[in-house]
Simulated assay, not measured.
Amino acid sequence: MIEKDLLEQLYISYGFELEISREKNISIFVYKKSRYFGVDIIPITDDEVTLRKAEEIKNEYSNLGYAVNYKKIKNNSEAEVELFKVSS
């Protein structure tokens, strides 16, 4: 299970900014410290409505020119492994 507060702290520690989301079950993190801006979109729950909304948000950011990763992460440990792989 994902603990949203811990997930946010983890992403911030890797240099991401927390984007305000209109959806309480979706976390959006923006990385603006390189030439190409990136966005990680993480649904906190896996119900159909949340996943559909996450896909819509992904498309919005893609259309704005962001490199978007839509990640279905099961827990905070999995998120940390993913972030470590990307930063290495």
Score class of each variant (00 low, 15 high):
residue 1 M to P: 02
residue 1 M to G: 13
residue 2 I to H: 00
residue 3 E to H: 04
residue 3 E to G: 00
residue 3 E to I: 05
residue 3 E to P: 00
residue 5 D to Q: 08
residue 6 L to K: 15
residue 6 L to F: 06
residue 7 L to N: 00
residue 7 L to Q: 00
residue 7 L to K: 02
residue 8 E to Q: 15
residue 8 E to R: 10
residue 8 E to I: 05
residue 9 Q to K: 12
residue 9 Q to L: 13
residue 10 L to I: 11
residue 10 L to S: 09
residue 10 L to T: 14
residue 11 Y to P: 00
residue 11 Y to A: 04
residue 12 I to S: 07
residue 14 Y to C: 02
residue 14 Y to V: 01
residue 15 G to A: 12
residue 15 G to Y: 09
residue 15 G to N: 07
residue 16 F to Q: 06
residue 16 F to E: 00
residue 18 L to C: 03
residue 18 L to E: 01
residue 19 E to N: 13
residue 20 I to L: 10
residue 21 S to D: 05
residue 21 S to L: 01
residue 23 E to D: 15
residue 23 E to Q: 09
residue 24 K to A: 14
residue 24 K to H: 05
residue 25 N to D: 14
residue 25 N to I: 03
residue 25 N to W: 05
residue 26 I to L: 06
residue 26 I to H: 00
residue 26 I to M: 04
residue 27 S to D: 12
residue 27 S to T: 03
residue 27 S to C: 14
residue 27 S to A: 13
residue 27 S to P: 10
residue 28 I to Y: 04
residue 31 Y to Q: 07
residue 31 Y to E: 10
residue 31 Y to F: 07
residue 31 Y to L: 14
residue 32 K to S: 15
residue 32 K to M: 11
residue 34 S to F: 06
residue 34 S to I: 05
residue 35 R to V: 14
residue 36 Y to V: 08
residue 36 Y to P: 01
residue 37 F to P: 09
residue 38 G to A: 15
residue 38 G to N: 02
residue 38 G to C: 06
residue 39 V to L: 06
residue 39 V to E: 03
residue 43 P to I: 02
residue 43 P to A: 05
residue 44 I to T: 05
residue 44 I to H: 10
residue 44 I to P: 01
residue 45 T to E: 04
residue 45 T to F: 10
residue 46 D to A: 14
residue 47 D to G: 06
residue 48 E to W: 09
residue 48 E to N: 09
residue 49 V to H: 09
residue 50 T to E: 08
residue 50 T to V: 12
residue 50 T to R: 06
residue 51 L to K: 04
residue 52 R to A: 10
residue 53 K to M: 12
residue 53 K to Q: 14
residue 53 K to Y: 03
residue 53 K to F: 10
residue 55 E to W: 06
residue 55 E to I: 10
residue 55 E to Y: 05
residue 56 E to K: 13
residue 56 E to C: 06
residue 58 K to I: 04
residue 58 K to G: 02
residue 60 E to L: 09
residue 61 Y to Q: 12
residue 61 Y to D: 02
residue 66 Y to F: 15
residue 66 Y to H: 06
residue 67 A to C: 02
residue 67 A to Y: 12
residue 68 V to G: 13
residue 68 V to F: 11
residue 68 V to R: 10
residue 69 N to Y: 13
residue 69 N to P: 01
residue 70 Y to V: 04
residue 70 Y to N: 11
residue 70 Y to H: 12
residue 70 Y to R: 11
residue 71 K to L: 07
residue 74 K to R: 01
residue 75 N to K: 04
residue 75 N to L: 07
residue 75 N to M: 09
residue 76 N to R: 04
residue 76 N to Y: 09
residue 76 N to C: 03
residue 77 S to W: 03
residue 77 S to Q: 08
residue 77 S to N: 08
residue 79 A to V: 08
residue 79 A to K: 01
residue 79 A to Q: 02
residue 79 A to I: 15
residue 81 V to I: 12
residue 81 V to D: 11
residue 81 V to L: 15
residue 82 E to R: 04
residue 83 L to T: 00
residue 83 L to D: 07
residue 83 L to N: 02
residue 83 L to M: 07
residue 84 F to C: 00
residue 85 K to D: 14
residue 85 K to F: 14
residue 85 K to V: 03
residue 85 K to H: 14
residue 86 V to K: 15
residue 87 S to T: 10
residue 87 S to I: 12
residue 88 S to Q: 05
residue 88 S to H: 13
